[in-house]
Amino acid sequence: MSEGEAAAGEPVHVVVMGVSSTGKTTVARGLAERLGARFVEGDDLHPQANIDKMAAGTPLTDEDRWPWLEAIAARTREVAGQGGSTVVTCSALRRAYRDVLRTAADDTFFVHLHGTFNLLAQRMRERQGHFMPPALLQSQFETLEPLESDERGALVDVTPTPDVVVEHALDALRGEPWPRPTG
């Protein structure tokens, strides 16, 4: 896949996933720009009740998540139906959640952004204006189910700069090797 191929060739559908503070939005914006794809911020599709719950420090239940995941899949289907490509942000922490997202496009590729707990906790403490409190990071790590061997995707380390992380994600989409996360 060459840079900009999404705009000229077959649609590409990417979900940038991971726990909070991995840089999903920054990386997804960079990928969307490089691929000529539509950027979709998954958090914007949360019902207000979910946002209120998380802001209060209460983890979401699966019952809270299903409508949100369906809304993300519907947005991807909408863009795909118009012949477009998408780069979507979504934590997609469990296989069952990714299965819902995959219903939008069989060729969905997951870029799983990975960082250590300490790195991400520090980023959360420094972040301004986000509804997800640092107290919920541990529950996200506990919920996280890594990509399985039959899922299209790659694990990408978030320790480098955002530009380097975007490059590693593009390499993964192209099927090229990239530095594997450590720790």
Rank of each mutant, 00 (worst) to 15 (best):
V14D: 02
V15I: 15
V15D: 04
V16G: 01
M17C: 15
G18T: 11
G18M: 09
V19E: 08
S21E: 12
K24T: 00
T25H: 05
V27N: 02
A28F: 06
G30R: 02
L31Y: 05
R34P: 02
G36A: 07
R38A: 14
F39L: 09
H46F: 09
H46L: 05
A49P: 06
I51L: 09
I51N: 07
M54S: 05
A55W: 00
A56T: 12
G57D: 00
G57N: 01
T58F: 13
P59F: 03
L60P: 00
E63F: 05
R65V: 01
W66Q: 08
W66V: 04
P67F: 03
L69D: 00
A74H: 10
R77Y: 13
E78K: 05
E78R: 11
E78P: 04
A80H: 08
G81M: 01
G83E: 09
G84S: 10
S85M: 05
T89G: 11
L93R: 00
R94I: 04
R95I: 13
R98F: 01
D99C: 09
D99K: 08
V100L: 04
A104W: 08
A104H: 04
D106K: 08
D107E: 07
T108G: 01
F110R: 06
V111N: 07
H112K: 14
H114W: 14
G115N: 06
A121F: 10
A121K: 13
Q122T: 13
M124F: 02
R125Q: 12
E126A: 10
R127K: 03
H130D: 15
F131T: 00
P133T: 10
